[in-house]
């Protein structure tokens, strides 16, 4: 009898923990421009302070993104919801081509995106990301998450990720994946950009993760992508212009 009770309770716990293996996460992606700009090496201390002074507290741009996920893979794209700028100025901007697909079964990635004025289709295998696991926990969208960190050496970013202890999915927003739980929050460079889950909806995944059938764009692999980003950032910094107007931070 006791065994059965244990069995049932364990079963229930597993059910709770495995309930959300398929679904959609809604994220808000907030860019704090003064913080982002303050990472640019060509701005002097004084210019950074001046920006913080003039825009401080009013510099955020909010976008909305979606992540479809199941055990096999994930698809991350923008939501139809207007961003804060469009909302403020009653304007509906062009939606960029943007989709990040991960196939964990086949260990492959496909990404379509616009960058530096062109549309690209990137196909490559999934590499193991060099995550560090830290000792903090917090609640994001009702899930207790653990903290992890990764360094982006190309964009020179320190990225903090919070992954859910109870959603055993290795997917995440933006280009990130590979943690023992679904990533529900990202903090890029001490709050320059914050991607935060607001809602996790269970959903039967059918075609949501399919890429658009007609995809036009220049084909590249991840190495070529990294080279291009690195070179572009270098040039723009030299020109004393913000490279992140034309590439995703």
């Amino acid at each position: 009898m006791k065994n059965i009770i244990t069995f049932i309770s364990v079963f229930l716990i597993s059910c709770v923990s495995y309930a959300q293996q398929e679904g959609m996460v809604r994220y808000t992606r907030t860019t704090y421009w003064t913080k982002l700009n303050s990472t640019l090496p060509y701005l002097s201390k004084q210019e950074k302070e001046k920006q913080a002074y003039m825009f401080g507290g009013r510099d955020e741009g909010i976008e909305y993104t979606l992540l479809y996920f199941n055990e096999k893979g994930s698809y991350y794209t923008q939501s139809e919801q207007l961003n804060s700028w469009e909302e403020k100025y009653d304007y509906n901007g062009r939606k960029e081509v943007f989709g990040i697909k991960r196939d964990f079964d086949k260990n492959s990635m496909t990404e379509v995106f616009e960058m530096i004025g062109k549309t690209y289709i990137m196909e490559d295998s999934l590499k193991q990301l060099n995550w560090k696991i830290l000792n903090d926990i917090k609640d994001v969208a009702g899930h207790i998450c653990m903290k992890a960190m990764i360094q982006d050496t190309i964009k020179k970013q320190k990225i903090i990720a919070w992954f859910a202890q109870d959603i055993p999915i290795i997917a995440g927003p933006e280009r990130l994946y590979g943690l023992p739980g679904l990533i529900l929050e990202l903090d890029i460079n001490d709050g320059a950009v914050i991607v935060e889950a607001t809602k996790i909806e269970p959903l039967k995944i059918t075609t949501q993760m399919d890429l658009p059938k007609k995809m036009k764009g220049k084909k590249i692999n991840e190495l070529a992508f990294q080279d291009m980003v690195r070179k572009f950032i270098q040039e723009k910094i030299k020109e004393e212009q913000n490279p992140f107007w034309s590439i995703r931070y």
């Binding site: 079963f11 597993s14 923990s17 060099n130 560090k132 055993p168 943690l179 023992p180």
Partner: peptide, 24 residues
């Protein structure tokens, strides 16, 4: 059951492997 178990590198806590405990 379902606990996340990770193996990290001692020098920098880098994630090397992870797994889930079974229902027992």
């Amino acid at each position: 059951g379902g606990a996340t178990v990770m193996l990290l590198a001692p020098k920098d806590s880098a994630l090397i492997n992870f797994s889930r405990a079974n229902d027992k």
